[in-house]
Amino acid sequence: MNSIIFTAGARILVALLLVFSLFMLLRGHHLPGGGFIGGLIGAIAFIVYALACGSAEARTALRVSPEGLAMVGLGVALLAGLVSFVFGDPFFTGQWYWVGGDSYETAAFSINSVLVFDIGVYLVVLGGILSIAFAFEEET
């Protein structure tokens, strides 16, 4: 796939897809989306890039190894579960901290372990699928 148009277009497409993947991740709690979907879109973004410019280029663009990313994601997800122990709740109980108020109605926004967990899912899916895809790209 050595088309110049595809290569040039891919860069813009990848950027858009990545932003879109984050958008899907963040809106997931209230509208269709979430870590799984966001992670899949992010993975597809890098796979498009790898198809256009080669997987070496895509690896460079990712900066970190996809396997490492997936492991970090798993760690983040686990951390989101462990936080509940600090507050004396059972494992993986969602923890909410309201910024600028004391409930959902009054707070400006919230910091919560649920989103942290979803970010972990996002990273695992992104890293896991990319490590598979890159391996296939390179070894087959």
């Binding site: 209230h30 979803d118 899912v121």
Partner: peptide, 13 residues
């Protein structure tokens, strides 16, 4: 669980 997307709330909460 303060989430409007029930599927996602089941998954992450």
């Amino acid at each position: 669980a303060f989430g409007r997307n029930i599927v996602n709330v089941i998954l992450v909460d």
